[in-house]
């Protein structure tokens, strides 16, 4: 009986683990693409953030390169990455709220604000460490403004 129970428990655990990993791995190429774009943002902001925090030594050239990558990434045309039916209700791998599809003008205004913050960072990053640090706040604010309105909380 105990053996049977532990079998059942193991089975449930497997289902739970598989269920979780399914919820995290995107299958839809559009969802995958936009999540990858977010990772590229994060990687480049991470280069800048490490210098802002003093984890990495400030290097004007590397900072300028990361900021320039970021500015380029914010210019990527994402219109094909957000097809209907890829919100978090339809696709559990996504945290994109349905409100995105009801407020496209606001979403693109927030995207524009991110592009502007990235351009400001591009001007600041190669200048000096203080300028870079000061530009981190508005950049984070732009990310957060959109996530706050249009991204579901982490499970």
């Amino acid at each position: 009986m105990t053996k049977y129970l532990s079998f059942a428990a193991a089975g449930l655990l497997t289902v739970a683990i598989v269920g979780t990993s399914m919820a995290q791995e995107a299958k839809n190429p559009a969802v995958k693409a936009r999540q990858s774009l977010m990772s590229l943002y994060a990687f480049n902001i991470g280069q800048l953030g490490a210098m802002a925090k003093g984890e990495a030594e400030y290097n004007a050239e590397a900072a300028a390169a990361a900021a320039s990558n970021l500015a380029t990434l914010t210019q990527v045309d994402q219109s094909a990455m957000w097809p209907a039916g890829t919100d978090n209700a339809a696709d559990p791998s996504s945290r994109a709220l349905p409100a995105i599809w009801q407020n496209f003008p606001d979403v693109s205004a927030k995207g524009q604000a991110l592009a502007e913050a990235a351009v400001a960072m591009q001007a600041a990053a190669g200048q000096d460490l203080d300028a870079l640090k000061a530009a981190m706040g508005p950049l984070g604010g732009a990310c957060s403004a959109c996530h706050k309105a249009y991204r579901a909380p982490k499970e």
């Binding site: 994060a42 991470g46 990310c143």
Partner: peptide, 17 residues
């Protein structure tokens, strides 16, 4: 301190909720 300034977590996601 960086999180409280820009909202970036150590893996450069942004603050939620």
């Amino acid at each position: 301190a960086e999180y409280l300034k820009s909202g970036f977590t150590p893996d450069y996601d942004s603050a939620g909720g």
